[in-house]
């Protein structure tokens, strides 16, 4: 094929553009500031864990890590549960009534977070849910519910109607059909949706920034952002923070790549 050399050159350059900065960040997390500035591209002279120790003890990153894990896992599970229930019902209710409810829920994807965050803040304040992990879980569910319903309804609609009817003929009600037919059959798409939600909620900065002021309740992106103010140009420490915050997702990505791609793509098609 013509242009084969050009193809390799372009792909090679772009691969370097992705790999080199990430390598500099990873190797930089094992260096001192001076080592990083003198030879940013060189591999670290030793894998000294000093920066990691500093990050995990000094800067409340350890707390943030635990909070991010707890908040994200809870929010993902609840969003999946509530969203898959809705998706199942809406995929099975025929005609315009189901469509209206679906359209109403999915319309939320068109509303940017900055448009309703102020009244949300006031509402959460009045409910005593500011500076609370429960409040954070709730707002993450609320913010991602429309897109979750969108993805999962899209999937449930592709399931053949006979699948559900077979269940009802055997005398199973909608709940039994949901539990023992719809859910098991949907595992791959639920997994993709779960990963999509996990990536968004794990990485979210806006709501922690708005709702959390107590350092004991902080999450990783917020801790990272505050980090910047603290260690203005101490890049090795910033890089260590980046690695700590990204490691769980990157490791999971290596093993569950197709689900990441499927989930994030499904989310971006309309999200």
């Amino acid at each position: 094929m013509a242009g084969s050399i050009g193809r390799r050159v372009i792909l090679g350059i772009y691969a370097l553009l992705i790999i080199v900065p990430l390598f500099v960040v990873l190797s930089g997390s094992f260096k001192s500031t001076k080592q990083l500035f003198d030879a940013p591209f060189a591999p670290p002279s030793s894998l000294s864990p000093g920066n990691y120790r500093a990050v995990l003890t000094d800067a409340s990153m350890a707390t943030a890590f635990v909070n991010s894990t707890v908040v994200t896992l809870s929010a993902v599970v609840i969003t999946l549960a509530v969203g898959s229930l809705a998706a199942y019902g809406l995929a099975r209710i025929p005609g315009w009534r189901g469509m209206v409810v679906y359209g109403f829920l999915v319309l939320g994807m068109a509303v940017p977070a900055q448009s309703n965050m102020i009244p949300q803040y006031v509402l959460f304040q009045s409910l005593g849910l500011l500076d609370s992990r429960i409040g954070l879980v709730l707002i993450e569910i609320v913010a991602t519910l429309p897109v979750a319903v969108f993805i999962m309804t899209g999937f449930m609609r592709t399931l053949p109607r006979e699948l559900f009817e077979a269940g009802s003929i055997d005398g199973a009600g909608p709940w039994r059909t949901y539990r023992s037919i719809a859910l098991p059959v949907s595992v791959p798409s639920l997994a993709a949706t779960a990963i999509f939600l996990f990536v968004i909620q794990w990485n979210d900065l806006l709501y922690p920034l708005l709702f959390i002021h107590d350092p004991a309740k902080t999450t990783l992106p917020l801790a990272l952002l505050n980090f910047q103010g603290e260690f203005l140009t101490n890049y090795p420490l910033l890089f260590t923070g980046v690695i700590v915050a990204s490691a769980p997702l990157v490791v999971a990505y290596v093993f569950l790549q197709r689900y990441f791609v499927a989930g994030i793509t499904a989310g971006s098609v309309k999200g």
Partner: peptide, 20 residues
């Protein structure tokens, strides 16, 4: 798979990479 990778990083992390 490699080119997709940056999409899973938080934007704060991406910001720090590019700050440097």
């Amino acid at each position: 798979a490699l080119f997709f990778l940056p999409a899973i990083l938080s934007s704060v992390s991406v910001a720090f990479v590019w700050k440097f």
